[in-house]
């Protein structure tokens, strides 16, 4: 499959509209089961606090997956992603009551050969940047 977004239709600076992804404890329990990462800091408040965290935090990979979904929903084809990397700059704290909101936005940062573009991603929760140096290289149509 080719991506639905056309290389010719994007410019450096093209913005991908921001989206908000809610995260609650049930998401983290499901993610623990599906990924095999059962570190209790992601589902047990007493353990999170005992190791100096403010509360239960999301798996970094859960946050990375949401930003990945943001990119693949935009491109139209998950198979179009050829490179994807992030730095986890701050934890996403997920309170029992109400959970957290992840706000993700993106911008085309560079156009490469072979119809590829570099998408720079921004992810915030509770006014903190939770990902930095987050970039995906996507092959467009």
């Amino acid at each position: 499959m080719t991506a639905q977004v056309k290389y010719a239709d994007v410019e450096v600076g093209t913005e991908i509209p921001a989206r908000t992804f809610p995260v609650d404890r049930a998401n983290l329990v499901m993610y623990a089961g599906a990924s095999g990462d059962f570190n209790p800091i992601h589902w047990r408040e007493s353990v999170a606090k005992a190791v100096g965290l403010p509360d239960v935090i999301a798996h970094g990979m859960f946050t990375m997956a949401q930003a990945g979904r943001f990119v693949t929903d935009w491109a139209g084809d998950p198979g179009a992603v050829v490179d994807y990397g992030v730095r986890f700059s701050s934890p996403v704290v997920v309170p029992d009551d109400g959970g957290a909101q992840l706000e993700i936005s993106g911008k085309v940062e560079e156009k490469l050969d072979g119809n590829k573009v570099v998408v720079a991603l921004t992810a915030r929760a509770a006014d903190q940047k939770v990902l930095t140096r987050a970039k995906a290289v996507v092959r467009l149509a």
Binding site: M1, N27, Y31, G33, A34, D73, D77, P78, G79
Partner: peptide
């Protein structure tokens, strides 16, 4: 199971026909 856990409903993760139609 993984796609469900990350909340991603994309059919290429769930439906072999959709994936084949997309060239996979």
């Amino acid at each position: 199971e993984f796609a469900d856990a990350i909340g991603d409903q994309n059919p290429v993760y769930r439906d072999a026909d959709a994936a084949k139609a997309a060239g996979h």
